[in-house]
Design a protein around this nucleic acid. Sequence first.
DNA 1: GACGAATAGTCAGATTCTTGAGTATCATGG
DNA 2: CCATGATACTCAAGAATCTGACTATTCGTC
Lengths: 201, 201
Amino acid sequence: MAAFIREVEDVAMALRHAVLAALLDEELSGYQLAKAFGLGVANFWHALPQQLYAELARLERDGLVSGREVVQDTRPNKRLFTATDAGLAELERFAATANKPSFIRDDLLVKVQAADHVAAGALIEQLAERAAFADAKIELLGGLLRKMRGGMSEEEFLRHGERIGPYLTCLRGIAFEQGNRDWCRRSAAILEERRTAHARG
Amino acid sequence: MAAFIREVEDVAMALRHAVLAALLDEELSGYQLAKAFGLGVANFWHALPQQLYAELARLERDGLVSGREVVQDTRPNKRLFTATDAGLAELERFAATANKPSFIRDDLLVKVQAADHVAAGALIEQLAERAAFADAKIELLGGLLRKMRGGMSEEEFLRHGERIGPYLTCLRGIAFEQGNRDWCRRSAAILEERRTAHARG
DNA sequence: GACGAATAGTCAGATTCTTGAGTATCATGG
DNA sequence: CCATGATACTCAAGAATCTGACTATTCGTC
C-alpha cells in the first residue's frame, strides 16, 4: 500500500505567505497576528482571527512555522510562532511567482458610482467618515514609521536601515490612505456643492 | 400549507449592488459587464464573468433588473439588462447602510514585506512591471474621463455635468494607480540602491 | 462583587470568489 | 480554407473568506 503524503500545493495562497512574511522578523502569537491583520497594522494583507489560527495550524503541520508554548500566570497561555528555514524557502519561491494585479473592491465606491441616483446626504456623511478613518490610520502608520526609523532620518533609514520591507509596505499603506482621504474630501465637497446648487437652482 | 417565499436578504452583498450601480445608466449585456468588471473599466469593483452571469440571474429572479433579448444576425444573440425601480430602491437602501473599511490585499505587498529575506532582483522586476501596468491603466482611465467630460473642462463637469458618480469613481481609480506607480518606482529604486551598495560594500 | 473589556483561542456553516472546462457563432488574416 | 480571436454564455467544483457563536482566564472599575 502506498503511503499518502500530503504535498504542499504550489498555488497562490497569499494569506499563507502573508503570515509567513509577518513571522520572519518577529515571534508572534495567533492573537497578536490577528490584531495586526485585523484593523490597522499589517498594511500588506487583511484577515480575521479564525483565518489566521487555521492558517497557523496548516503552516505548522507543513513545517513552515514552528510554535512554542509560553506559560503565563497573569494571562492565558499562548503559543508563539516563527518561520522555519522551510518557511523562508517557501517565501522565496513565492516571491518569484507572478502576481495578479490588485483591484479595488470597496462598498463606498459602489455607492459613489450610483451617486446620481441615490440620496446625497448619506453619501456625503459616509465620505466624511471614511476620510476621518483614513486620517486616524495615517497617524497610526506614521507612528509605526517613526518607531521603525528610531533615531534615523527617513532618507538615512531607506539607505541603511535594516528591515526595509515592513517600512516600504507601511509607506504604501499611508499613501493609500492619503489618496483615500483626499478623494473622499474632494468628492464630498463636489457632491455638497452640487446639492446646494440644485436646491437654489 | 404555507407558500415558501424567497425573501431578498438584507446583508451586504456588494457585488449585487455593484452590478445594479453599473446598470443604472446603461443597458448592458452580461458579456459587456464582464469586460467592464474584468481588467479595466469598472474602478469600483472587480469580478469574473461567471460571477456576473450568476449575479444577473439572481437579480432578475428578484426583480431588481430586467433583461430583454436582442436578436443579432451578425453575432450570437444577447440579453441586455437594466435596473428596475425595485433595483434602484434596493440601491438606495444599500447606500444608507454602513460600509466596512476597505483593505489592501496584494501579493506584491506581501513580497515587499519580506524584502529583507528574499532575492531583490525578482522583486525589483515585479515592481517595475506593476508600475508599467499602472501607467497603462492611468492612460486608459484618463481616456474614459475625457470621454465622460465631452467638451467640458474638469471643473465645469464636476459642477454641472450629469452622471458624476462614474466620473468620481474613475478619479479614485486613477489616483489609486498613480499611488501604486509612484510607490513601485520609489521602492524599486530604493531596493536597487541598497543592492548595489551592498555589492560594493 | 458584579460587569465589561482584553487576552487567547476554537468550531461550524454560509457566502463569495476563483479555477477550469465547455458550447456556439461569426469575423479576420494569412 | 483554416486558425485565431471576439462575441455570448454556462456548468461544476474547490478554495478563500466571512458571520456568528463558543470556552476560559484575568484586569480594571464602579
